[in-house]
Simulated assay, not measured.
Amino acid sequence: MSQQILKDKEELRNLIDAYAYLGDEKKISQLMDLFTDDLQYKVYMGNALVVDVEGRENMERDFDEHSTQVKTYFTLNGQHTVQIDGRTATGISFTQIKMVREADGKDNITDYSVRYDDQYVFQGEKWLIKQRTAHFTIVEARPFNS
């Protein structure tokens, strides 16, 4: 494996981790800097498509709205596999996300097991996410006792 491939794989992993860090901290405008302007973002809950957003501006608006409904995010990234082809790449990553929300005066926590299918491009001297499809495969909600 070439030095460039190793460097690219590390940068792509850092990109995925930055998505988690910035999302957890609700730094939405900085999070948007990880995407191309013409991004495509989809979310499936089971087999149902529940989010289909195109463009960074639309996604920022959706993420801003979502973040106001969540008190706390906690994300843990797992496996991340990429296939690099010059200045483009595809990747699969697995993530556990916890979200704490308030409903009826009580905190509830939801655990999500997510698989991301990504397309990346090297643009402006850095890797960016061009397309991200999230598959929420397991969702478990319960009261949260902090």
Rank of each mutant, 00 (worst) to 15 (best):
V51F: 09
I84A: 07
I28K: 02
Q30I: 00
F35C: 05
M59E: 12
I138C: 06
D38V: 06
M99A: 14
A48V: 03
Y41V: 11
F74L: 06
R87W: 00
A103P: 00
K126F: 04
Q69V: 09
E10H: 10
H135K: 11
N14K: 13
S93A: 10
E140S: 12
L128R: 12
V53K: 12
E60D: 04
E125G: 06
Y41P: 03
F136H: 13
G78E: 04
S67T: 06
I84M: 07
D8K: 01
G105W: 08
N14A: 11
N108E: 00
T137E: 14
F35P: 06
D118F: 01
K42N: 12
Q131G: 03
A89R: 05
G55N: 04
T75H: 14
S93Q: 09
D17S: 08
D111E: 09
L39P: 02
G23H: 00
V121S: 10
S2A: 04
N58A: 15
D104R: 10
V51W: 01
V114P: 02
F122E: 01
S2E: 11
L39N: 12
E102C: 03
V82Y: 02
Q123E: 13
L76Y: 13
F94L: 01
V121K: 09
G78L: 03
D33G: 14
Q131E: 15
K106D: 09
Y21I: 03
V139A: 00
A20S: 10
G78W: 03
K26I: 03
T81V: 15
L6Y: 13
D117W: 04
L22N: 01
T137M: 14
S146W: 07
K106E: 15
E60Y: 10
K126W: 00
N77E: 08
D38K: 13
Q119R: 14
H66Q: 06
A134S: 14
A48E: 15
S2P: 08
Q119F: 13
T133R: 08
D64N: 15
D111L: 14
Y41C: 11
D17A: 07
Q3A: 15
D8G: 11
T36V: 08
G78M: 05
M1T: 14
S146F: 07
R56H: 05
D17Q: 12
Y19N: 03
R142E: 04
I5K: 12
T110V: 14
K130C: 00
V70D: 08
T88K: 07
A20N: 01
A141P: 00
Q131A: 11
A134G: 13
Y116F: 09
D8F: 01
P143I: 10
E102F: 06
D104W: 03
D37V: 14
E102T: 15
N145R: 01
S113N: 07
A48D: 09
L39A: 09
L12N: 02
A20L: 04
K27V: 01
I5Q: 13
K130L: 02
I84H: 02
D24E: 13
K98S: 02
V51E: 15
